[in-house]
Amino acid sequence: MMRPQSEILQGEALERLMHATSGHATVADLRDLEAWRTRSAAHADAYRRALGIWESLGTAAREAKTATDHVMIAGQVRAGGRPVGRRAFLIGGAAAAAATVAAGFVLQPPLGLWPSLPDLMADYRTGAGENRAVALAEGLSIEMNTRTSIVRRPSDDGEERIELLAGEAAIAAAQNASKSLTAIAADGRVFAARAQANLRNDAGAVHVTCLSGSVQVECGGRTATLRAGEQLAYSPQLVSPVAVVDPAMITAWKRGLLIFRDEPLAQVLDEVNRYWRGRIVLLNTDLGHRRVTVRIELARIEEVVSYVRSVLGAKVRTLPGGVVILT
């Protein structure tokens, strides 16, 4: 029995959305997705229903960046900005109108599902589950974790400067480095000379962990000096007190591991989703509150689903594009 065309298109829409969220998508890929979405009314409807799946699963509330995302799901406007009506096509031409929509589609991803244009244009970028080592200068290096975007900024002769747009990276300034390293993350700056630190930027919520030596952090009008094993967290609303942490836990990703000790399952899966090519959606609130201690090998990350099913008794349903629903 042949599948209905609407079901085929919805499956394709989900797969395209998942590719867009994988971290591998380029600007050309996103424009291709927009071209696919506007191919016909059936394609637009399939795309809208695919976004609706995210909304109905409760993920859109967590991912949505603007009210436009919610309006778009309701089918009231086109993705990516202001509506494009018949008058726009008649006066400005279909090509110009389509270009306006496509530009907004890339600049303002619906539901925040894929990297923004600045992230896509970063000097260094990793996709889901990838890491990358970059040598900036003699004795200066960065190691990038999953879904990370970094740009190089203009700097003085005695300094290298980078900006962590999103994601996580370990920075290192060796003893023989001829320059110091400044890392910008959201509203703060980290200064490293003969030191190592781990930086993580989650939509402006930043955690800075000193791994060796000492680093200076400037944020929120204050300066703090961190020594090995100390962490400072800051966001536009708050600068937290310096805390003592386990550097081995923070940098387990460098060894291909995720380690959780007595953490709620929902929090574990949120972290796993950073590495997952697709999305794991947990719909069972009680299950999400269960506390677990687990060690996950990133090379075998798919085994986390088997663990939740066999050990915690979750029901598992898979959808196209790497979507896994746990109930």
Rank of each mutant, 00 (worst) to 15 (best):
V206H: 01
Q267D: 15
C219P: 04
E263V: 15
P264E: 02
R261F: 07
C210L: 08
L226V: 08
A224C: 05
T225H: 05
S214T: 14
T209D: 08
P241I: 00
P247C: 11
A224H: 02
A224I: 02
L211F: 12
F260H: 05
G256L: 04
E263F: 07
Q216M: 04
V215N: 01
E263P: 02
Q237P: 01
V268A: 07
V242G: 04
H207M: 13
D262Y: 03
V244C: 11
R255N: 14
A224W: 00
S214Y: 06
V208H: 01
M249F: 08
T225E: 12
R261Y: 08
S240P: 07
V208T: 13
R255Q: 14
H207R: 11
V239L: 09
Q237L: 12
S235Y: 08
G220A: 06
K254A: 10
P264Q: 01
G220Q: 04
A224P: 00
P264K: 01
A233T: 10
G221L: 07
Q267M: 12
S214E: 15
S240A: 14
I259L: 13
A252I: 00
A243F: 00
L269R: 06
G229T: 06
H207V: 12
L211D: 09
V206T: 04
V268G: 07
E230A: 08
C219D: 01
T251E: 13
C210G: 11
A224N: 07
Q237W: 10
T251L: 09
I259A: 14
T209A: 03
V245Q: 11
L232V: 05
S212R: 14
A266S: 14
T251A: 12
C219V: 13
R222W: 05
T251V: 15
G256N: 08
L258C: 07
R255L: 06
V268F: 03
T225K: 06
E218S: 09
H207P: 07
C210P: 11
D262R: 04
A248L: 14
K254Y: 03
E218V: 12
Q216C: 00
P264N: 04
R261K: 14
A228P: 11
V245A: 09
R222M: 12
S212M: 10
Q267F: 00
V217Q: 04
G256P: 09
M249P: 00
S212L: 07
L269H: 09
V206Y: 03
V217C: 05
C210Q: 09
V242W: 05
P236S: 14
V268T: 10
V217E: 02
V242P: 04
V244P: 01
L211G: 10
D246G: 01
M249R: 11
L269A: 05
K254N: 06
M249C: 06
Y234T: 00
P241Y: 03
G256A: 05
T225C: 03
V206F: 01
C210M: 08
G220P: 02
L265R: 02
I250N: 07
Q216F: 00
